[in-house]
Design a protein around this nucleic acid. Structure first.
Length: 583
DNA sequence: TTAGGGTTAG
């Protein structure tokens, strides 16, 4: 028996000179059976009470790949006089487990027993608070960090930044960063991720330059590139993304698979499919992430058939698709109105690949049915789902009700959203539009009154446009942009010009103001030479009026216009849109 | 007294 040999090997090893080989054996084995035998042996010989053995042992079983919390706790209880390191290991184990809050109790217990914690203890406890969303705990830890004088411990402070960043307190995270005496690349990286997570994508991009400046500058590493590329994707910052791409090439990161995959995603999300495809083709060992990124790129740019072709190619190459691959594929079908293909893929996914559809898959199919007018069927599908419908899926259906003017179903959907306590300003606006497009003005007035009573305020949506690598942002009825007066002037001029060519502002949609994408487009016309492509990114979905405006603009001003809205791309050219007015 | 902490793609 193998186990017998392992055990019988030890007596000869357990001379003073062979301690190290036993320790390195503990550190390297991944077999639980072997560890159990070593464990029994160490207990029998009382060697287990020696930290030389118990520390690496506890480490081994509490970290991946074994990562066995129950076993770690049992082992911990067998240590008669645990030292700080043992406690730390257990706190870390809890931080990685499903019960992060218990790590805090272990820490408290340790303090009560009169053990003094060290900076690692605080680091792990902070992680527990981050994962367990314990605001109070985290604040307590912060106070302790100050009291114990760990104010120049970069690693500990980085963990603390993560805590604030994860809890939506981006400003506090920045404050910790500002007060750090020394910063390394990881600290800068956490700052980037903090900005991105807290919706300050612009600031995230600025960090890329900021960190390289100054005497205490740090060179961005591969992780920085990943994070910044993500920010570029969010902002549709194509030129900035290209700059990061150059940096990646110059610093020898071009062969890292995760970086290449992010580049594919970034170019796709900036509407630059050719570039995305170029990078994609040059990846030698494409994995499921690479393929999914490419499929998703074609999908969101309204090229559903090509997305399906890439999927077929992927299968020929023997790469198995996963849940996210199907989400990308199905969204491709919905953006291109491929009803039969979508249904067949949805079926195929379950039968051939044994995947259980999740809320995203259902969401795509509901979107697809809604687009082609099968709103009642979509409703039935939501009702029949095995998982609980969320607000997003009802909102998708509500959007379809608006497009197809289905008033009764729209009202039913709003009720569902109210049940979920999830109704937002945007939902009421959609319903308002359903009423107004069917001429139901009494209901419009009634709903307006209700909205006023409930104090529902619309969050202003924003559009961005990139000029020479700089991002310009516009909100509805913007007044903050430095060239806003010129923008309004040119917007009036454009509207006049478009009216001559048949454009009429849409009145069915509730149009009270200058939408942000219009302002951004006008700024594009104002600030770039004739013929330059205009690329705008918007956080919500584009409305019919702005869509018409863009179509006309592309014809009358001979400009290619690309608008990325919340769900997809619209490429306008010579008076037409790639979505064929289907969105 | 050796052990031990932070960021990461679709």
């Amino acid at each position: 028996m193998h186990s017998q040999t392992t055990i019988s090997r030890f007596p000869s090893l357990l001379t003073q000179t062979h301690f190290e080989s036993l320790i390195s054996f503990i550190k390297s084995t991944t077999k639980t059976t072997q560890l159990l035998e070593i464990h029994a042996y160490l207990l029998r010989t009382s060697l287990f009470q020696n930290t030389t053995f118990s520390v690496p042992f506890l480490n081994r079983i509490s970290l991946p790949p074994l990562q066995n919390l129950t076993y770690s706790l049992r082992t911990f209880s067998q240590i008669s006089r645990p030292i700080v390191t043992h406690y730390n290991t257990i706190i870390r184990a809890y931080a990685m487990s499903k019960y992060p809050e218990k790590g805090f109790y272990v820490y408290r217990d340790m303090m009560r027993k009169g053990k003094s914690s060290n900076s690692q203890s605080l680091s792990f406890v902070t992680k527990c608070c981050t994962k367990g969303c314990s605001v109070f705990g985290g604040l307590q830890v912060h106070a302790r960090i100050l009291r114990y004088g760990y104010c120049s411990d970069t690693l500990l402070l980085t963990t603390l930044m993560e805590f604030y960043s994860g809890g939506g307190k981006g400003d506090d995270a920045c404050k910790v960063f500002d007060e750090m005496p020394q910063r390394d690349t990881v600290a800068w990286n956490v700052l980037v991720s903090c900005y991105t997570r807290n919706g300050k994508t612009r600031d995230a991009l600025d960090v890329f330059d900021r960190m390289q400046r100054g005497e205490h500058g740090c060179d961005p590493d591969d992780v920085t590139c990943l994070l910044v590329l993500q920010a570029c994707s969010n902002m549709c910052a194509f030129e900035f993304g290209e700059r990061v791409h150059r940096y990646v090439k110059d610093h020898g990161y071009s062969h890292a698979l995760n970086i290449c995959n992010s580049l594919v995603a970034m170019y796709s999300k900036c509407g630059q499919l050719d570039k995305a495809y170029e990078v994609f083709q040059e990846i030698p060992n494409k994995d499921v992430v690479s393929w999914t990124a490419m499929i998703s790129g074609f999908a969101s740019n309204g090229r559903g058939r090509e997305a399906i072709n890439v999927f077929r190619e992927m299968q020929r190459m023997g790469i198995s698709p996963d849940e996210q691959t199907f989400t990308a594929l199905l969204s491709g079908c919905s953006h291109s109105g491929l009803l039969d293909e979508g249904r067949s893929i949805f079926d195929h996914m379950q039968r051939e690949f044994g995947l259980v559809p999740n809320i995203h898959h259902y969401g795509c199919v509901v979107d697809l049915m809604g687009r082609v007018g099968l709103v009642e069927d979509a409703y039935e599908l939501i009702i029949s789902m095995k998982c609980k419908p969320d607000a997003t899926i009802w909102r998708t259906l509500l959007g379809a009700c608006k497009v197809h003017g289905n008033l009764t179903l729209g009202e039913r959907v709003i009720e569902r959203l109210i049940e979920l306590k999830a109704q937002e300003a945007g939902d009421y606006i959609l319903l308002l539009n359903i009423y107004s497009s069917s001429g139901n003005w009494e209901k419009v007035i009634e709903l307006r009154k209700l909205m006023k009573e409930k104090g529902i305020q619309t969050t202003p949506s924003a559009s961005t446009i990139e000029l020479k690598g700089e991002i310009h942002e516009f909100k509805v009825d913007d007044t903050s942009h430095p060239r806003i007066n010129e923008v309004y002037e040119i917007l009036d001029e454009i509207e006049k010009q478009l009216k001559i060519d048949g454009y009429n502002a849409e009145i069915t949609d509730v149009r009270l103001s200058y939408h942000s994408e219009k302002l951004a487009m006008a700024f594009g016309v104002l600030a770039t030479p004739p013929g330059t492509k205009i690329r705008v990114a918007k956080d919500l979905r584009i409305c019919t009026d702005c869509h018409n405006f863009a179509k006309m603009l592309s014809a009358v001003y001979s400009r290619e216009v690309t608008i990325r809205d919340r769900t997809r791309f619209h490429h306008f050219r010579e008076g037409r849109c790639s979505c064929n007015d289907f969105w």
